[in-house]
């Protein structure tokens, strides 16, 4: 079976949607040259109006996409750096997201914001290493963080076809993932539907994006000790697949969340709150996150020290299994 990389899956999804729907266009910085490789080959295929290289004017081109969407198009913006989303938070959270309600449903704003290389990029330091998916979930913008090439393909297709703004985070740590994929099976993946990546009986681990790989590795490691770990990947941060998560937690009755967000009000905090409200667990749930208020320091050992990792996850799993 052919190999498909995560990055190539993004490229393929964009190409397929550009081909299928003439109202789709991509805009962003250095996308003609395909600096991130996400748009590789697309300029040659679709030309300058469909692959629109922009000046460094993030706020204006984000609103520009909103305007184009109001006129009937489906723009996809590529942001080269996750922190640029802080710069355009107003344009997404306060403009694009609010048009539908504020106009009483007169319009829709189907814009997709793609961030290839979110989270730590190893050595890119404080201002290029954020992973701000929690922020968008908090304000109610549809937000996805796919883990695998097939999900990256399917969720990008669904994000583009959705009639609302969708932020699409492609974690740096997942871009290199390559899977055996039968290309004929590539299909849209619905927003808001999670997936049990690995079935298990003793504990549910909730993981997103690149951390799914860490969760699977931890599950392998613990299987050798006779511990059966179920890995649940929500895939969409907002709206969250609460029912899917509830089904897994009802089976294992123990829960650990690994989340590459800062701890306070992070995605893991929301999962634990839902667990407290709704789930019947045999032990208090645990979370593995970035520390409170973390800024990623440059030096490699420091960068790694503030990221949630496999060892902490294994420790947390042992802890919830030991508690009654």
């Amino acid at each position: 079976m052919p190999k498909l990389s995560y990055l190539k899956a993004l490229n393929r999804a964009l190409g397929d949607e550009l081909e299928r729907d003439p109202t789709v266009f991509v805009l962003g910085e250095d996308i003609r040259a395909a600096a991130s490789n996400v748009t590789a080959g697309l300029f040659a295929r679709f030309g300058p109006d469909r692959v629109l290289d922009t000046p460094l004017s993030e706020q204006a081109f984000t609103n520009f996409a909103t305007g184009a969407a109001l006129a009937g198009m489906r723009p996809v913006i590529e942001f080269q750096i996750p922190s640029l989303l802080f710069l355009v938070f107003e344009q997404i959270a306060n403009q694009a997201h609010k048009f539908s309600l504020m106009t009483g449903g007169q319009c829709k704003v189907p814009v997709t914001y793609v961030v290839p290389g979110s989270g730590s990029r190893t050595g890119w330091a404080g201002q290029h290493s954020d992973h701000p998916y929690t922020l968008f979930a908090h304000v109610g913008v549809k937000t996805v963080v796919p883990a695998t090439p097939a999900d990256a393909y399917g969720l990008l297709i669904s994000a583009i076809r959705d009639d609302d703004p969708v932020v699409f985070f492609a974690p740096s740590g997942a871009l290199g993932v390559r899977d055996d994929v039968d290309f004929s099976t590539l299909a849209p993946v619905p927003l808001g539907v999670g997936r049990v990546v690995r079935g298990g009986d003793d504990v549910t681990v909730v993981a997103l994006g690149h951390l799914v790989q860490d969760a699977l590795a931890a599950a392998d490691e613990l299987a050798g000790l006779g511990i059966s770990v179920e890995v649940f990947d929500p895939r969409t941060v907002y709206p969250l697949d609460v029912e899917g998560l509830a089904a897994s937690a009802a089976k294992t009755r123990r829960l650990v969340v690994i989340d590459d967000s800062n701890r306070t009000s992070g995605f893991a905090a929301e999962i634990l709150a839902i667990a407290a409200e709704r789930f019947d667990l045999d032990a208090p749930p645990r979370r593995v996150t970035r520390p409170d208020g973390a800024v990623l320091p440059f030096a490699l050992a420091l960068d790694r020290a503030v990221q949630p990792g496999r060892d902490q996850l294994v420790t947390a799993i042992h802890a919830v299994l030991e508690e009654q």
């Binding site: 305007g67 109001l70 006129a71 723009p75």
Partner: peptide
């Protein structure tokens, strides 16, 4: 910028 995007589209 919204109007600019709408007019362009």
């Amino acid at each position: 910028s919204i109007a600019t995007g709408a007019a362009w589209a």
